[in-house]
């Protein structure tokens, strides 16, 4: 439990995209820039999964992506919060009939939170972050 609490201080995020439409990815960057600026709370994107406290997944998970997702999850230091970002990552969304789809994210790795929306609004993203923090602290 204590270990989990440490995670809530300044969450470092690794962003994994597999077949998104780019919009979620842009909104993720967007909340780092001056208007929303979640970097104030120590939240930032990192280049390596080994530095990350949180794995953020966007996109409908393509056949090529699913292999990498598994590998990246195995490389990640545990505990790690896994967040499905956007409708596609949460439920395959509009692409659920695609021939290049793999399986939904939560059938591959355990997921801690979903942030639905197409794309989620910055306010929804920030709300999602707050909920992840609360969950890690054991408040919900």
């Amino acid at each position: 439990m204590n270990k989990l609490k440490i995670l809530t201080k300044s969450i470092w995020v690794f962003h994994f995209a597999s077949g998104p439409c780019n919009n979620c990815d842009i909104e993720i960057l967007d909340i780092l820039t001056p208007r929303f600026d979640v970097e104030r709370f120590g939240i930032k994107l990192v280049g390596s999964i080994k530095h990350a406290d949180c794995l953020l997944i966007t996109g409908m998970l393509t056949r090529k992506g699913v292999v990498r997702l598994k590998e990246i999850y195995e490389m990640a230091p545990k505990p790690i919060a896994v967040v499905c970002f956007g409708s596609c990552a949460s439920s395959q969304g509009i692409f659920k009939n695609s021939y290049n789809r793999a399986v939904p994210v939560d059938e591959v790795i355990p997921v801690s939170a979903y942030i639905p929306g197409c794309p989620p609004r910055p306010e929804a993203i920030i709300d999602g972050i707050v909920k992840v923090v609360k969950k890690l602290r054991g408040e919900i």
Binding site: A17, S18, G19, P20, C21, N22, N23, C24, D25, I26, G59, M60, T62, K64, G65, G93, I94, F95, N97, S98, Y99, N100, R101, C118, P119
Partner: peptide, 29 residues
């Protein structure tokens, strides 16, 4: 090849009006 979602095939299963929403999600920018 990693981001291939097969939109051209998906489009063949959607109504003409629905396709506008599908092609919107080719790219967010």
């Amino acid at each position: 090849g990693y981001n291939h979602r097969g939109i051209e095939k998906l489009s063949e299963g959607k109504h003409w009006d629905q396709v506008t929403f599908l092609v919107e999600r080719i790219c967010g920018i």
